[in-house]
């Protein structure tokens, strides 16, 4: 359950960004979570809900986009999205040619993509 530590780091970024943009409130937080990031989206969401209380984002909606695992194949040169990791046919191999000489190019990411904020002018 390291999601709470990660959410704490997320809030440091949110507060810094909100300050820079002179936001009075953060209304939406959109994050990208890689399928292989080791973060469980449901746990991330519940950590977010409890952490947001009393912060500038206390009414904010959390939007989570899961980043799929993508391999670059050294055999056929293609960059292809892998099957869903929970599916039985998932394998650490090129989905096109089957070669195991692949490199993981996405799926481990953990990003704050964007914020929706309110400002007063």
């Amino acid at each position: 359950m390291h999601e709470l530590s990660i959410v704490a780091d997320l809030f440091s970024i949110i507060e810094e960004q909100a300050k820079q943009a002179r936001a009075t409130r953060v209304t939406k937080v959109k994050v990208l979570i890689g399928e292989l990031s080791g973060v469980v989206p449901e746990l991330f969401r519940s950590a977010f809900q409890s952490y947001k209380k009393g912060t500038i984002a206390d009414k904010a909606k959390l939007e989570i986009k899961i980043t799929k695992i993508k391999f670059k194949c050294h055999n056929c040169g293609q960059e292809i999205k892998a099957k869903d990791i929970s599916s039985p046919d998932f394998s650490y191999a090129c989905p096109a040619c089957g070669s195991k000489d692949v490199e993981l190019v996405s799926g481990r990411d953990l990003y704050l993509e964007k914020l929706e904020i309110e400002t007063e002018s």
């Binding site: 990660i6 780091d9 997320l10 970024i13 960004q17 943009a21 936001a23 209304t27 994050v31 990411d109 953990l110 990003y111 704050l112 993509e113 964007k114 914020l115 929706e116 904020i117 309110e118 400002t119």
Partner: peptide
């Protein structure tokens, strides 16, 4: 209301 693009590694 506005949107701020952040793209920062958490």
């Amino acid at each position: 209301k506005k949107e701020v693009l952040v793209l920062e590694d958490i």
